[in-house]
Design a binder for these strands. Structure first.
Length: 360
DNA sequence: GTTCTTTCACGTCATAGTGT
DNA sequence: ACACTATGACGTGAAAGAAC
């Protein structure tokens, strides 16, 4: 398999897995579209052999799941109807709480029940298109964290993934978070406070505060950044004029004349004119000042582009993190459903034994 | 040891969705 | 209408393991 093909295979599997889980959580059944699109890989993973067994017994009141006691009428092959108190006492809250997906579920199930055989191909295609619409991991996870206390959450990954954000989370609602190429996080809060956190360091230790002080003294287009290092003796000020950039200086202790040298373990920063290819560890400085020459305009465009790329970079990272979390949720959901399925089958077998005693 | 395969993470682009 | 964000798609490179 070529590299590209493999990637598509993986992506397809991921999407199909999402679809399967979404569709199967409604009533435990698997729709035809899922069955036809299921890859061999997923078939081996999710032992579906139990589903047909359930399908042989007609279960009335499947819709009683939402908000009503889990008493189910089970019609046995012999014709008897038995009230069954299910293993699942209350409707299990779905791991996936997105209203968007819920809507899709309803449509899918309705189609499956009524006219799946006639419009199968077209509908499954449509369905796939709908289902493949972008899920909002943010919404899903927000709802997960607030609405569903009983749902197994992925704490391990959170603790692992949020090892860097916690340093930032202690701040007052940052509006922008940047990560330098050296791994440091620089957050700009709404109040103008800048905080630098070292992901490698533990908690507050790696946190440094930079406070914006609009003292009026700086020239137009410049911003005074007050360096309030925690371990430093005093505060230091340096200007970040309009089209200049603040560059983290990893090794040298030399600092420009307009910037006091950092003390102790604190990193030093240099202010440079933006090159065509920006150096590592660059933090864009605000430059709302007036632009005149085409060169300045070009610089501004470059700066904006770099800023946009940097933001998008961070957004992509965050998105991937959420996606991983989301997939983990789905996987745990699958595990839960499989266990429930097993229990239900066992329960059914027990009931069968009770209701149809052996004749010999 | 070298080559191939697989997996993972990343950066970038395009674009739908959302807020102002 | 515009700016911004979130996410899918794509290409790339590194790391790990398998096959030779």
């Amino acid at each position: 398999m070529s590299k590209c093909g493999r990637k598509k295979y993986i992506k397809t599997n991921l999407r199909q897995m999402t679809m399967e889980t979404v569709e199967s959580q409604q009533d435990g059944s698997v729709t035809d579209s899922v069955a036809e699109s299921k890859s061999a890989h997923m078939q081996t993973q999710t032992g579906q052999s139990s589903v047909p067994t359930l399908a042989q017994v007609s279960v009335a009141g499947a819709g009683t799941g939402r908000g009503s006691p889990a008493v189910t009428l089970v019609q046995l092959p012999s014709g008897q109807t038995v009230r069954v108190q299910g293993v699942i006492q209350t409707p299990q809250p779905s791991v996936i709480q997105s209203p968007q997906i819920q809507t899709v579920q309803v449509a899918t199930i309705a189609e499956t029940d009524e006219s799946a055989e006639s419009e199968g191909v077209i509908d499954s295609h449509k369905r796939r298109e709908i289902l493949s619409r972008r899920p909002s991991y943010r919404k899903i996870l927000n709802e997960l964290s607030s609405d569903v206390p009983g749902v197994p959450k992925i704490e391990e990954e959170k603790s692992e993934e949020e090892r860097t954000p916690p340093n930032i989370a202690t701040m007052a609602v940052p509006t922008s978070i940047y990560q330098t190429s050296t791994g440091q996080y620089i957050a700009i809060a709404q109040g103008g406070a800048i905080q630098i956190s070292n992901p490698g360091s533990d908690g507050v230790q790696g946190l440094q505060a930079l406070t914006m002080t609009d003292s009026g003294a700086p020239p137009p287009g410049a911003t005074i950044v007050q360096y309030a290092a925690q371990s430093a003796d005093g505060t230091q000020q340096f200007f970040v004029p309009g089209s200049q950039v603040l560059v983290q200086d990893e090794e040298t202790e030399l600092a420009p004349s307009h910037m006091a040298a950092a003390t102790g373990d604190m990193p030093t920063y240099q202010i440079r004119a933006p090159a065509t290819a920006l150096p590592q560890g660059v933090v864009m400085a605000a430059s709302p000042g007036s632009l005149h020459s085409p060169q300045q305009l070009a610089e501004e465009a470059t700066r904006k582009r770099e800023l946009r790329l940097m933001k998008n970079r961070e957004a992509a990272k965050e998105c991937r993190r959420r996606k991983k979390e989301y997939v983990k949720c789905l996987e745990s959901r699958v595990a839960v459903l499989e266990v429930q399925n097993k229990k239900l089958i066992e329960e059914l077998e027990t009931l069968k034994d009770i209701c149809s005693p052996k004749t010999d």
